[in-house]
Design a protein around this nucleic acid. Structure first.
Lengths: 347, 347
DNA sequence: CTATCCAATGCAACCGGTTGCGCGTCAAGA
DNA sequence: TCTTGACGCGCAACCGGTTGCATTGGATAG
């Protein structure tokens, strides 16, 4: 009450009156300036600015069907894999004057479905990252709205895939080159497309290089579970490990350190996704991640679908590579356990 | 074309015709069922279901002004401080059936302003986190829409503040108790409310405990800048440091390790925000962060403003505390440099 | 000088709901 | 039996833009 609150937002009609023209003219001044007199456009825009007029997207959407919004649904915002992707997607969308809704499915397919229903009537397109829905559900939704997938491979649906297989293959070559003969792969979530891809690539490459491979399961990709699987890793007698992701790898580093095992001197480790930068010590050898590019590309693809039409089966693959840092080295001569010098015993 | 595409979405009018009633009745069947005959409601809802009718949010929003959307604007999605906040905010909103727009200002006030303008016509309320706008701009926007601030203290605008001052104070007490006499504070961004707050709290507490304080500047809060300021920290001859945030602290840890300085044996370090969990090695002593609660509380506040009205000057403060882990200890007897035993020299 | 045409605008319907107001009906109170 | 009022529902205006079509005036062609 105090400030003489004029809360009324300015409408097109207000601008029209102030400019002495009709609503349609104001509308066209913004959407089809070339169909109007140049000075008229200028005058209207000036007045609009003075009045603090901001076009109402809701109204526009109602009559055009174009909302200028995208929905971005991820499984866990707090997982460091996603923020760069979200950021890139958001900025890419913004560049084309699109707003983005963010949804967090929390790894729950039902929640994901709910969110989509909730969003679908206010967006022009959906972007699903690492979706947990079934192929059928995805196809259903894709029927209603343009939809693109990231890290999920459903034939017929436009998708962008981060091909970490390449990087994993390089990791194996790298380890083999250093002289390792026996490694372990630490699994991520079994429902994860990325995990299946990585594990398979690893197995194939290991076979080629004649490496023995053991599998260990850290169902949740996190620091804690990485730390928890260290005993299993050690039991395997392997000299190196590839972890599903950097978080897991980081946990493993801690677990090793707690047992007095020096990385990379006594054990080599490679992560995946490069979400930690070089922020561990020693800095982690890992497979590069291009989630930001994936986000950008996904939005770009979606935008393409919205303007022109696209062939239904776009499949964009982003390659990765190995980032060699400081957690990999030649295996120790002796097994860590039998080391004669004053190495700390395992706890 | 193939599937005999009947893409026309069902409208309220369609349902009305099918049910032999008027649009208004259909509308009321969904929004005010008690004002209608019970069997009428049931019949209409059945028919609506059969037809696959889904209410159009855009149209509803246009006439009611209620969109069921919130805007959340942060300065950098990729900064680990934000994801938990975003996640919590998103879920809190979702619990009340609100969707959230995510905006990334990228530390740029103009971008932030642009985003707000872009969002404002499709949301019922704004949530600004660590806003870089001027007080005047914020007040302006608050006039147009319900608005709440997080980590920004503008009188008259509802806000939730993470009071890291408390935790910082405890950190000083902790360090003093361990016997430290001389510490350094590593600054974050000068425009940051949080940084000013932390520095001031630290100075006051240090004075009380008769600690000498040096300041060092790491303008950007990041791993790299932390690593870069290590020489300055060492030059100060201090025996401990408090860093603006965990990222900076992590960088410092690496920098120290590279110089053969052992933490906490030769140098104590405390971070801020606890964004890394216990994921460093040794695990980082830090000031707790409650960004998730802040996000939740912010949305909750906003929702309150939307339903009831609220007194304009809500100021919700979230306390923090010190999380003591493994990077703090009593200072070394000798200065690290003069250590007689076989300590590695600085590089 | 008149017929023609194009550029610049206005008119009004429409997008899909919501809602104040009014009308008819049936039951309870007088 | 007549009045009264609550209840159930329809009418039509409105939210704030967009857009096909009509209109007008001036420039150009004939």
């Amino acid at each position: 009450m105090q400030h003489g609150a004029r809360k009324k937002t300015q409408t097109m009609a207000d601008v029209a009156v102030a400019a002495g023209v009709s609503k349609s003219t104001v509308s066209r001044a913004f959407t089809q300036p070339d169909r109007l007199g140049p000075e008229t456009v200028k005058r209207i825009k000036n007045i609009a600015r003075q009045l603090g007029y901001v076009p109402n997207h809701t109204a526009r959407a109602l009559s055009t069907g174009r909302h200028g919004n995208l929905a971005l649904i991820v499984s866990d915002v707090a997982n460091p894999f996603f923020p760069p992707l979200i950021r890139a997607a958001q900025m890419e969308a913004d560049g084309s004057d699109f707003c983005v809704f963010l949804g967090n499915s929390d790894e729950d397919p039902r929640q994901e479905d709910r969110l989509i229903d909730r969003f679908v009537s206010q967006v022009e397109g959906l972007l699903l990252v690492a979706s947990r829905l079934t192929d059928e559900q995805i196809v259903q939704h894709a029927r209603r709205r343009p939809l693109v997938l990231i890290n999920r491979d459903v034939p017929g649906i436009p998708r962008v895939l981060i091909e970490s297989a390449t990087g994993v293959r390089h990791a194996i070559e790298h380890l083999a080159g250093l002289g390792h003969k026996h490694i372990v792969y630490v699994n991520g979530p079994s429902s994860s497309w990325a995990n299946r891809q990585r594990r398979n690539a690893l197995k194939v490459a290991a076979r080629q290089h004649k490496l023995e491979v053991d599998l260990v399961n850290a169902h949740v990709p996190s620091y804690e579970s990485g730390r928890a699987v260290v005993p299993q890793i050690l039991d395997s007698k392997a000299t190196a490990a590839v972890a599903f992701d950097d978080l897991t790898a980081q946990g493993i580093m801690t677990g090793m350190a707690e047992r007095g095992i020096s990385i990379p001197r006594q054990f080599s480790l490679v992560g995946c996704d490069d979400v930690l930068g070089a922020a561990t010590y020693p800095s982690l050898t890992t497979v590069s991640n291009r989630s930001d590019e994936a986000g950008r590309a996904g939005v770009s693809l979606l935008l393409d679908m919205l303007s022109g039409r696209m062939a239904g089966d776009t499949r964009l693959v982003l390659d990765t590579h190995l980032v060699v840092r400081q957690t990999t080295a030649a295996p120790a001569q002796e097994k860590p356990k039998g080391s004669p010098s004053g190495q700390p015993e395992r706890v």
